[in-house]
Nucleic acid binder design. Structure first.
Lengths: 178, 178
DNA sequence: TCGTGTTAGTTTCATATGCAACGAAATTAC
DNA sequence: GTAATTTCGTTGCATATGAAACTAACACGA
């Protein structure tokens, strides 16, 4: 039971009783919310690894990770592969260039583009961060059986697909609920 | 101690080859990263529901959701239950109060606290948003069997617990990798 | 009663974010 | 060839964020 519309509520303004509205929405069961909280918690924990030590931000780390994984790429490719905003990518690269962790070279064939590559220094930092990051991931998955990891992998992939489905049709305002 | 410091590192300052470094880190397989991208995509899709229509932000929606779910609460309780920063909570409440969607009443027993409650207007907005949000969640989970939903639920819960494990010991810098 | 410490919540400030407008280069249309 | 259009990436601006400092109120002990 809830403290139903007790007289307390009607004291001032137009305070309606809250009316929990079961069959309604319970925040900690709401998937988008759970994902958000979980991802934030995890992200921050990981970020502490490189923020303090190397003065690197999350966007910067992502750029490094892409470069470390794929080698030299363009800004656009980084954007696609990281789901980051292009502005964010641009600024992350700027900072990494100032820190001499990556180099930017204009593509002679198409001078709007530039190829981003890690420097030796950047590679060194990258190689220091990777094991730390992997170790955190391992802690995160501690106690998960191989089967459970597989399940998780599959479920996250499918959620990712579905998320595209609701995010893609950007102007489709509602789901037909109106 | 750190991993290797292989001779590769010392190549040249400017442009080392990327060296994909298998057994290393592949960003799209890195769980923290996947969670982050997924959560962002989903959050934005949901946010569009109430941002455009009601001029409500994510933090504001969360506050409403807590109030709708639990009835009047204190700022601190909102912070705990939403995993939001206390500053964020404070500001969300401020805006909601200006918009007359919630009311704030100082607790007479402890005048540092205030009890936040929805107004009638707030409740109206809340009730409009809920079905939209639930519908998005439903789309997100479309094609998931009951069993898969259960799996997801369990896995996310456990990840949440583990995340607490790596986030909590805030000053434990690394995993002993240094 | 007066300190000292603690807690709730707000304000300050420096940084991060992202939309939108922009400049430059390439592409297409004429 | 030149004008209109598109694409790549950066910059401007207004807002969002969070750590740290702060105010106000309570709690405890002397």
């Amino acid at each position: 039971m809830k403290p139903s519309a007790s007289p307390l509520d009607s004291l001032d303004l137009s305070d309606a009783g809250p009316i929990p509205d079961r069959d309604g929405l319970v925040l900690d069961r709401f998937l988008p919310y759970r994902l958000s909280v979980l991802a934030n918690t995890v992200s921050r924990a990981i970020a502490r690894l490189y923020a303090d030590r190397f003065g690197i931000t999350i966007p910067e780390w992502r750029v490094l990770a892409i470069l470390g994984d794929s080698g030299p790429v363009t800004s656009a490719e980084i954007r696609d592969r990281t789901a980051m905003d292009k502005v964010q990518v641009s600024r992350a690269i700027q900072r990494l260039v100032s820190a001499r962790l990556v180099s930017r070279r204009t593509d002679p064939a198409d001078r709007r583009r530039a190829t981003i590559a890690m420097t030796g220094k950047g590679n060194g930092v990258y190689r220091e961060i990777v094991p730390l990051a992997l170790s955190r991931e391992a802690i995160l998955l501690e106690g998960f059986s191989a089967e459970e990891r597989e399940q998780l992998d599959v479920l996250l992939n499918r959620l990712g697909d579905r998320a595209g489905a609701i995010a893609g049709p950007s102007d489709d305002t509602a789901g037909g609920v109106d």
